[in-house]
Design a protein around this nucleic acid. Sequence first.
RNA 1: GCGGGUGUGGUGAAAUUGGUAGACACGCUAGACUUAGGAUCUAGUGCCGCGAGGCUUGGGGGUUCGAGUCCCUCCACCCGCACCA
Length: 954
Amino acid sequence: MEYSPRDIEKKWQQWWEENQVYKVSNNSDRPKYYVLDMFPYPSGSGLHVGHPLGYIASDIYARFKRMKGFNVLHPMGYDAFGLPAEQYAIQTGVHPAKSTAENIARYRDQLDKIGFSFDWSREVQTSDPAYYKWTQWIFLQLFSHWYDQSLEKARPVAELIQLFEEAGNTSVKAAHSQEAIFTAQEWQAMSAKEKDDVLMNYRLAFRKTTYVWWCEALGTVLANDEVKDGLSERGGHPVERKPMLQWSLRITAYAQRLLDDLQEVDFSESMKKMQSNWIGRSEGAQLFFDLEDNKGQIEIFTTRADTIFGATFMVLAPEHELVKEITTAAQQQEISDYLAYVNTRSERDRMSETKEVSGAFTGAYAINPFNGAKIPVWIAEYVLKDYGTGAIMAVPADDERDRRFAEKFGLEIIEIIDKSMYPGATIEDKKGKMINSDFLNGMEVLEAIEAILQKIESMGIGKRQINFKLRDAIYSRQRYWGEPFPVIYDQDGVAHAMPLEELPLELPELDDFKPASGGKAPLARATDWVNLPDGWTRETDTMPGFAGSSWYFLRYMDAHNENAFASREALNYWQDVDLYVGGTEHAVGHLMYSRFWHKFLYDMGLVPTKEPYKKLLNQGMIQGVVENIYLLKEKVNGRNKYICAKLAKERGLTDYVQIPVLVDYVVNYGSPDSYLNIKAIQQLTKWRPEFADAIFECSNGIFMDGVFTPKGNETDSFLLTHSEVGKMSKRWYNVINPDVVVEQYGADTFRMYEMFLGPIDQAKPWDTKGIDGVAKFLRKLWSLFFDASGQFNVSDEKPSKAELKTLHTCIKKVQDDIERFSFNTCVSAFMICVNELKSQNCNKRAILEELVKLIGPFAPFTGEELWHRLGHESALCQASAPVLNESYLVEDSIQYPISINGKKRDLIAFPADASKEELEKMALELESVQKWLEGKTVRKIIVVPKRMINIVIG
RNA sequence: GCGGGUGUGGUGAAAUUGGUAGACACGCUAGACUUAGGAUCUAGUGCCGCGAGGCUUGGGGGUUCGAGUCCCUCCACCCGCACCA
């Protein structure tokens, strides 16, 4: 029988499904292992070859672990709520539920073809009411809890009310945004509405007017991590800062724990760094400066309180509340002009021009609490409303930005740190001796920081404070396709949790998905749904994309439970995710939110572990290639003319056009003399009509003139290009669909090839060129089992030592490499093994059976076929067929290189079991060695068993 | 600017703790077979040199009998953050 992937894939896919081979039980004597993929958002364009990379790796690992005797949970589902489906709905009128269902069906079909061993009985979809019932449920738990900083855990709001009733809020150490303090009596005297307002400042899910990112084009607010470079992450639309009444999650309550517990998890260093930078902890002091004439106080945060004697001015963020109050009549005009200017500037402008300084003087003065100096108060863009208190003391002598500002506006600069003894030291180094600083003079910086902090605290003008960059997560979206808030408002606008037994609160049907007017969500249109008896109303915003994905890994443990998000038994059995595979793009979004939710659930005693993921493996992106071709300024007969990189360089052109192509169409890809194959140009004109009538000129003549008739002698070469690696996306027309590859080569070849491409965590451009090598390998493997006439033919003969050595070298290498997630080297090991067995003409069952077990996780379809041919009833990658635990290498002798002073002289075989001493002795006795050593003195001999022998002379 | 990472043939890449650099595969060259195909097989393939031999892991320096691997320094590229007080 010929190797025909198409037939065997269909057959085994069906068989696996019928026999529920990969269904996993929550009851097992075997140790548990949980392998999780980041579930996909089912987009309209389907999977491209980049998506399965991580899935293949995790599938290999899951299959391998099963064969090593683990009870492996390996589920899959869909992050099904989200913007694209809704945007599509707005354009086409197709209900998001419908398009999402279609996309999911397509994804499922694609996934099945690649042969994953998912337990589909546990599938989750975040848009399924049976699922989002529990998303809503967790939200309500967040709503009804607050964070007690003295116990370092979340507690029910009912207990907080009790504390307030007993002693007001002064003794409560909580994560909060409550400014006013009150006594027990004052609390009692508050109206229900007032009490509710206070409690909102403590709840972990709370509703408050805050400055948020508003995206006009998407008609919704966005969270910090959904904004990149002043543009929305989805769609790349401009965003602006706007105060709006929004739901938020108090993730800041968990900032310290999210930071500390990073030490417990096995994430890459860069991933941990990204998270800790995002959390952005800094130690410093909160300090109050009195304003002149008792006009109040300015609160600032500083990490460098020691520099206070150099504080020659203060700067408030333009949005700071005090600005209006303190601006003097004389400065009124200047300030409002400046505010108007700030208003015209987008977030992008603000970020792109960080070197430019601008600002305006309020006319007010603050008093330096230490020396009574009058300090002018300015406002400036470079101080951010969001960070710290939105106000700083400016120390131009020791801060780059403050210095620029002082220089521009002619403000005083007082040197306060003598760094002369530390040449090259920067401000961050915190080195130098204090000068011009009163009682701090002569101290080292670090000493001074401590001294002034003590002074500040004893004077009662401030205190030590830890500040975090992390902001609370904006949780409202003015969109339709998301989880409705299980919240209702009374006539006074007080938010009430819906009774838990009424969950899920389902999304109402709608046929117009456009945002309603005035920043209102589409749900506002569903008046029947929104308006409740007695003037009560529902929340019309929906939850953001990260809501459903923040806990989905828990649902897989007990996906059909109707009474809890997962049963206690299931949670206790599966505990946490042992291996989580996904891209780095979720470093500060999903991974932070889910860690936060998990910690909250842990505080409630609902999950057994502090952290959701033990180990995180980041797969690199598979990219497309973007080539640059150079556009000539002047047109030729009204047509665009493009020239190759070489010509462009000669003529000094820099004006290039980026075009997407596939690596396959680039000849000599990666080298400086790469050029485009004509096929690529033909593809190009299909994708980009503007190229259709263009003229292309290569360094050796014009190659295309409207029609594809290359001039000159070249047959298939085209433009010299200068390539960059870019993302694979529909927009760039460089997407490769896995179905096409699977159709042509088979799933096993596709899987192995993706692994063979390189280290799993590395980004790489998709390149089909090498896939034939893997296809060839599988045919070779197949041919070990079938004779020339195509008959299945394995022998029961006893394996030879050489055959055993080949096999066991492979077993050892592959098992070690799987455990360190080095899948590309596993594939190489298989190739070596099969090549050797082939040259040994080995068709012995004892060898082949072990080999099939090893290859099974990589090539499950082929593996399964061969496994059954060998006479087994059960599926290959079930726990029933464990791989050999250990390998034993059959070796009689080992070849040792012998060198003199590091220079290799000979290669000689010694017994494999020889000790260091014996090797040394045998080496010296060799005739050739004796000859080289004549008349020389041996200084020492270095013997590295199984590696080399080096004799040092002279 | 700060933080993290990477640099090895024409290409993707291998290389336990420092121990034969370039495994494996693509591509290329030559040949065999052939139903002429993008099939299969064999041999060759880091660079220089006719050769013996010499040179080679981004550049330079160091430690060592021995460095792709460790240390210093410079360069290039990629990723993340970025007026963070």
